[in-house]
Structure formats: structure tokens, C-alpha cells
Design a protein around this nucleic acid. Structure first.
Lengths: 359, 359
DNA sequence: CGCTCCGGTCGAATCGATTCGATCACTGTG
DNA sequence: CACAGTGATCGAATCGATTCGACCGGAGCG
């Protein structure tokens, strides 16, 4: 009885059938003991469990279970960029965090996939991984191809910050309105000379003053929407693009803006908090006080490491909620319901970095 | 022939058997067409592919394939903390990046798991996910339990920055030596009054000056090793602990160190670059020039966003390589070989933030 | 007392693909 | 001309678990 695993076939791991046999029950009963999907007599349960421990059976093989169930409990998250890049952005991190939360509630794990065809011959892809659904962060043209394979498999898909076609639910933000609100705030404070520092226009990440042609060619939806929002209020604001959502990029852009003492803005709207932090640093570097000499507003509402005492005036976006909503949408689709796109709204937060325009 | 899917069973997705039948070949041949594991006549291949497209068959079901193969192509990465926290740390991000690279070469994806039992009744765990191996980042006592289940399943495991028992391969760093090297560098520059700002001592994250009792009770190996390294050179250096590896934490610690103009260190060794950046900011805030008035060294060798012009003197650790090595170790173990622990070494980098002690 | 209802258990089909050994038609060679 | 060798294909077993309908004995009810 307690001789341990059969010496002959000890190489093979015990299966639930072995356990059932040894416990003198049917495989179905043994299965139920582990899944709890049906009532089992206490005595039986204990016997099965004891035998299982004895045989070194540690529970059903997830692979087999997922085949039979038709669910693997795994949801893919497809990123366009290198992880390093993606997680440098606190907004994305927060979103991922919400997403993992939302999916965990649903009982699913997160499989990280990079949309990188050159990775290897048998690198995992959306098409070859045992997933139940997919969440796309952004949606490059290349990604749209892979996407088709997933849809053909009939798996639920959700897109965050991107466009994958009309029948794929989106998680969006009211970028335009939120940006306009910040602009109106500054206008109300009396600022006439406003400038804006944007996120990258496209994957090119060109930096510096933007021409109207460049602006017309913006491919990143987020950048465009926030820019348009500001322009509703300040149609002629100077536009400088940053190369990435980073403090140092904001610093560079800020230096550009504050270079000419004769012609400097009294208000700067940055398209991200990180950029805003850099702009603030540039201002202080130039001997300007924030907000006495210049007002600076951000976007995102994240906790910026390295901002010191300032509380940024910004549009707080519900980053984690976006992720959680994606999880919820996946859950709904998995249950066979239709999931609609969701549009989140930002909350304006007045901090200590904006104030009345200097006279 | 091209009538499309059978109207009766059109609800059901086509299987490889359907394709085989429709193409007039055996399932084995059809399978081989997709896997390429055996030669197939060009004509046959094309016919099968055509039929597959016609039937809307997009390739083998990964679930079934992984059952039969015994491999799922997924490796779990277990984190102790919230994603948000983990990815706030650039070192971890870089490591994850290397890890995903290393695993992609191997043809595996990364399943993110948080070691959080309270997540949900059927939240995925190391024990219930269809994984081929696991990488642990850190190794809390709680994690060691789950660990056992994985080992019972006979899956390869690797630990980065943690200890999971002697028979689990580790990816380590020469923290102590690297820290000592930095200390010696400062000593050679003539610094006599040195201080150090450490990473958190434990999960408690208490901040401030450290008593010898607190130091004796350090549970985080990394913190302890780097501290010991410095003490080889500066046995009596003042020790201040930060609450996390963040710029703002460094700022707080720095203020503490520079509070008393009569009694301030001329050299500060931070246990991370982020902390160092905060210390530098604190120094500048206190009107001190780096490195003229005070030298500051970091640890990690990451690109710190928001450091401005400074180039940090630091110990550059091969973060991405650590991840890649973990991937390689997994690959080796998956191939049935034994994988040994690997110890990486840091490279000392002299930047612009350290200089001769002020006279 | 007979009948329904229910907790508990069992059998057997099924999920979808992979793979190994066997088979078969050919082709080149001695 | 027979036979070994080879490329292509086929059959059938197998991976390990889940689940649905059937079945059975006992408790509760009228």
C-alpha cells in the first residue's frame, strides 16, 4: 500500500486514473474530488486525497485539463515594444497592474507577448499560445495581421489605446476633452502665451519644434487627440514634440522653450506628467519659479518619482481602471456576451504648478 | 467542395481531422504539414493548406498540442510584489526584458504570476497553470510552499535574487565585491567621512538611520551583501536605509545626511542608482556641488531618467544578462541537463559624480 | 407503503493533436 | 533481376482529464 510509486513505472508521473484505481473509485469521482464540481462523501474525499499524496500526485495536469475544458486560464497581452520600453512608462505599468488584477479575479493569468516576428522560429505568438483571449496594447499594422489569426480562432480581443477595427472593443480615454480642460484652466488664469510639449508623433520619435506638416502627419492617436484638445483653446500655441514620455525628454523640450528670455511662454502644457517634470526642471534651471514665473501642467496623474515638493496640475487618468475594464470586457466576452468599447474620462486636478499669469 | 463549412456542424470549429478528411489524407499527414516535422510532397502540402484555408482552420489547437507534446511553451515568472512595484524598478524591468528575450529564443512565452493567495478562488498559480518551468524573482517564505508543488511536478525552476534551497539554481551577483570596489574608489579619492544609503532592510521598509540591531536583522540578501561590501572599507560609515529604490526615497535620505552642515559626509554610497539620484538632488538642494563638495555613487548602472547631466559613478550590473541567463538555464534544464547557479559580476564605472575629497 | 427526490458514484465518450512503427511505390545499384 | 534504401503516407495508440447521463440506495412525504 505505502510502498511508494510502482517501481516499474515510477518514471511516469501518476495520473488521476492511477489515483482513482488505487483509491478504489472511478476516475470521475477522483476528478470531482479535485475540482469540487460535485458533492463527494467526506470519507471518499479523504481517501482519494490520501492516496494522491501517497502517489505523489499533485493535482490534475493543467494541459490536459485545459484541453478538455476548452479553457487555459491564460490571456495574452500583446505589446508593440520591448518590455523595457513599455514598463518605463508608469501609465502602462499601472494599466498592466489593473489588467492583471482584473484578470486574476476572472481566474486568468497574463501571458506577455511581444509582437516581434524576428524573435525565433518557434517563438510563441498570439496564434500558437494556448490562450483564451487577447489584450492588445496599441495596435501596429503588423499586429493587425496576427490579430486575424486570433479572431479566426474565435477568441475575444480587446484593444487598449489603439484601433484594431470597429468590431474589436476598445478601451479609450477622453484625451481631447481633458486636454482642453487643462487649457481652459490656464486661460482662466490669464495666460496668453502658452506652449505645449507633446508625446512622440510617431515611431520616429523626432524631437523639437513642430511644423504644421509634421503635425498633420501624426500617427499616434493619443498625441493627436491631446493636441487637438489644447488647440481648441490655444489655436496658435507653440508645439514642441518630445522623443518619449520621459523626464529627460521634457527637460530638453523645456530648455528649448525657455531658451529665449524675451520670448518664453508663461504656461506649458505637457502631454505627460514625466515630460512636465522635465519641463519644470528646465524652468528651475533657467531661474524661473513654478508657478510664479511659469505654469506647467501635465497629463496622466501618476506619481512622478523625482518631482520633489510640487504637486502637478494634471488630468488624472484612471490607468489601472483601464486595465481592469479590459479584464472585465474579456470576462464578458468569454461568457458569450458582447462587450462594447468603453470610454474613460480624466479628472482635472489642480496642483501647485499652475497659477495666475505673471503680469 | 467549396461549399464552406458543413452547415450542420458549422458551429464547431474545424479540427485537423476535418481538414485531413477533406483533403483526402490521413490526420498524421495533415499534422505534419503544419508542424513540418517530416517531409511532405509539395502537392500534398498545398492541397492540405488550401483545404485548411477553405475550412477556416487556422492551425493546431495549442491546448491539444501541448497535451500531446507535454510542453506548453510557457514559463512562469513569479513575482513577490505587485506588478506596479516590480516594474517601477528599472533593474527588474531590464531583467524581465532579458528574460523574455532568452525565453523567446527558446520558444517560450512568459506568464506573469503574482504570488498572491488572496487573489481569487481560481486565480492561476504556479500549480495550476500549464507551464513548462518557473522563474522566481526573489523568494519569500510563502513562495517556497508553492514552490514545492512545482518541484513535485518535476518542472525546472530557477531563482533570481533569492534563495529557494540548495538544489534550485540561482542567478546571483557579486554584490559584496562590487560594493567594496566602489568604497575603495572613494577611499582612494581621499574620502574619510563616508555614508551609505541602503535599499530596504526587509518588507517593512522602515526608513532612516540604522541601528546595529536593525542591521543585524536585515532579511534582504541584496541589501546585506552590498552593505557588507562597503563596511569592508568603511566599517564605521553612517548607514541610512531608504524605503524603496526610488529617487524620492534617496532625496529623503539625502536630506537627513546633509541636514547638519557641521557633520556631513563627503562621500555617499547609495545601494541603487535611483537612490543616488535622489541623494544628488538633496545635495544640490542643500547648496552642495557634486562632486566638488560631495561625491555620490550609485549601484546598478541603469539609465536614470531625470538625472540631467551627471554621469553616475556606479557598479554596472548586467541586469538583462541575468534574465537571459535564467532563460538559458531553463533551456538547459528542459533539455534534461543539470543547470548550475551562475554568479554575475558588476563592472565599476567611474562617472562624474565622484571626485577628490574636499580639503 | 409506494413514490419522489437527492446525494453520491460510475462508465464511457470526448477534447484535438502528435508520433511511432508499418507500409508502399520507386529508384538506383551490384 | 532482386534487394536495399528512401521519400511519402497511413493507422492507431496516446496524452490526462472532464463531464454528462445513468444508476442506486436511502430519506422524506403523503
Amino acid at each position: 500500500m505505502s510502498l511508494g510509486p510502482d517501481p516499474v513505472k515510477s518514471r511516469r508521473r501518476a495520473t488521476i486514473a492511477d489515483v482513482a484505481r488505487a483509491a478504489g473509485v472511478s476516475p470521475s469521482t477522483a476528478s470531482v474530488v479535485f475540482s469540487g464540481k460535485a458533492p463527494v462523501a467526506e470519507a471518499t474525499r479523504e481517501r482519494v486525497l490520501a492516496v494522491a499524496a501517497d502517489l505523489g500526485y499533485t493535482g490534475p495536469d493543467p494541459r490536459a485539463a485545459s484541453l478538455r475544458r476548452g479553457r487555459s486560464g491564460i490571456v495574452a497581452v500583446a505589446l508593440e515594444e520591448h518590455l523595457r520600453t513599455a514598463f518605463l512608462d508608469p501609465v502602462k505599468t499601472a494599466m498592466m497592474d489593473g489588467l492583471t488584477d482584473g484578470l486574476a479575479e476572472l481566474g486568468a493569468g497574463v501571458l506577455l507577448l511581444r509582437d516581434d516576428p524576428g524573435a525565433g522560429p518557434d517563438a510563441p505568438t498570439l496564434a500558437t499560445a494556448p490562450i483564451d483571449a487577447a489584450v492588445l496594447i496599441g495596435c501596429s499594422p503588423r499586429m493587425r495581421e496576427t490579430l486575424e489569426a486570433v479572431r479566426a480562432r474565435g477568441l475575444p480581443i480587446v484593444v487598449i489605446e489603439g484601433d484594431a477595427g470597429d468590431d474589436v472593443p476598445r478601451i479609450e480615454l477622453d484625451n481631447r476633452e481633458a486636454a482642453a480642460q487643462i487649457a481652459r484652466h490656464l486661460l482662466a488664469l490669464g495666460h496668453r502665451r502658452a506652449a505645449m510639449v507633446t508625446l512622440p508623433f510617431d515611431s520616429g520619435r523626432e524631437r523639437g519644434d513642430a511644423t504644421s506638416e509634421r503635425i498633420a502627419a501624426i500617427t499616434t492617436p493619443v498625441t493627436r487627440e491631446r493636441l487637438e484638445g489644447v488647440r481648441e483653446v490655444y489655436p496658435d500655441a507653440r508645439v514642441v514634440s518630445a522623443g518619449a514620455s520621459m523626464i529627460d525628454e521634457g527637460l530638453i523640450a523645456g530648455r528649448l522653450l525657455f531658451a529665449d528670455p524675451e520670448d518664453r511662454p508663461t504656461a506649458v502644457m505637457a502631454q505627460s506628467d514625466l515630460i512636465a517634470a522635465g519641463v519644470i526642471r528646465a524652468a528651475e534651471e533657467a531661474g524661473l519659479q513654478v508657478p510664479q514665473d511659469v505654469s506647467v501642467a501635465g497629463f496622466d496623474g501618476i506619481a512622478v518619482d523625482g518631482l520633489g515638493e510640487h504637486v502637478l496640475t494634471t488630468a488624472v487618468q484612471p490607468a489601472a481602471e483601464k486595465g481592469r475594464a479590459a479584464g472585465a470586457a474579456i470576462a464578458r466576452m468569454l461568457a458569450g456576451e458582447q462587450a462594447a468599447s468603453i470610454r474613460f474620462t480624466c479628472t482635472f486636478r489642480e496642483g501647485t504648478t499652475t497659477g495666475p499669469a505673471p503680469s
